[in-house]
Design a binder for these strands. Structure first.
Lengths: 138, 138
DNA sequence: CAGCATCCAGCTTGATACTG
DNA sequence: CAGTATCAAGCTGGATGCTG
């Protein structure tokens, strides 16, 4: 089943990058992609190109600062393309790059599987909180 | 193309949960799954059952406290099963639940796609840093 | 509209020490 | 081994004010 050998976990392809390694740059990128705002921003952009304030409304709860920061990180990683038109009022569109789309496809599959499993999650939480006399957790 | 209508984004199935909504509990669960340590912990457990300190070594850089906290959250969400044997020295095994496995399958697909795209990401960063005179970013 | 700069509260995190 | 308790520090992120 596993014809390769290397620094990666058994069963995974032998890539030069390994998110499990603390020093690997892929770890930072994974954090940008899966971070609280990164994931939602990418997910929102999956539908198509959006402007800054459209994104802000779409990603419920994000602040201007965090959205700006998130977009910079994603743009730098080559996942999001920023296109500014020199008009007044200013118009800037953000959209996924091909790489961003490949990654976001997987990300959305993950998000959907979480949403799909939520009934089970909620039930599990009730059971857990019953067994432990526990007050409040995230 | 889209036979449903509801609070979700166009094109997505009409589930009762929506990660894009600030108040939806699925958002918390998504954060547990994609969080810095949650993702790596689930990924490590995908291979099979692991003990606490095995996990610690596998998830490079995680502290005892963070691993403990992460495992509690994932256990409460019903993604990880904890099995303690009353022996001396104590032995506790963690493994994915069926729900946890379904979600982790998607998570690993995402992680792999990030690793696979890293050459492109690194190249994009170089280009970005050239265009902007920027010193250091994450 | 599309941001950047600053301030600062508080949550997250990592060490460290200790328990069963 | 498998954790819990405590504490300091630093980073995250929200609010505010301003620019082009």
């Amino acid at each position: 089943m596993d014809t390769s050998a290397g620094p990666d976990a058994p069963g995974t392809p032998d890539l030069p990058y390994d998110v499990f390694a603390r020093a690997c740059p892929s770890r930072r990128t994974l954090e940008h992609v899966t971070g609280r705002w990164g994931a939602l921003t990418l997910g929102a952009l999956h539908e198509g190109s959006l402007r800054f304030n459209e994104l802000r409304r779409r990603v419920d709860g994000v602040s201007e600062k965090m959205l700006s920061q998130t977009l910079h990180a994603l743009e730098r990683d080559g996942l999001v393309h920023r296109e500014a038109q020199l008009v007044n009022p200013p118009r800037v569109d953000y959209r996924l790059t091909p790489l961003g789309r490949r990654i976001t496809d997987r990300l959305l599959a993950l998000m959907t599987s979480v949403e799909t499993g939520m009934d089970e999650v909620v039930a599990a939480r009730v059971r857990y909180d019953e067994r432990h006399g526990d007050p409040v957790r995230g």
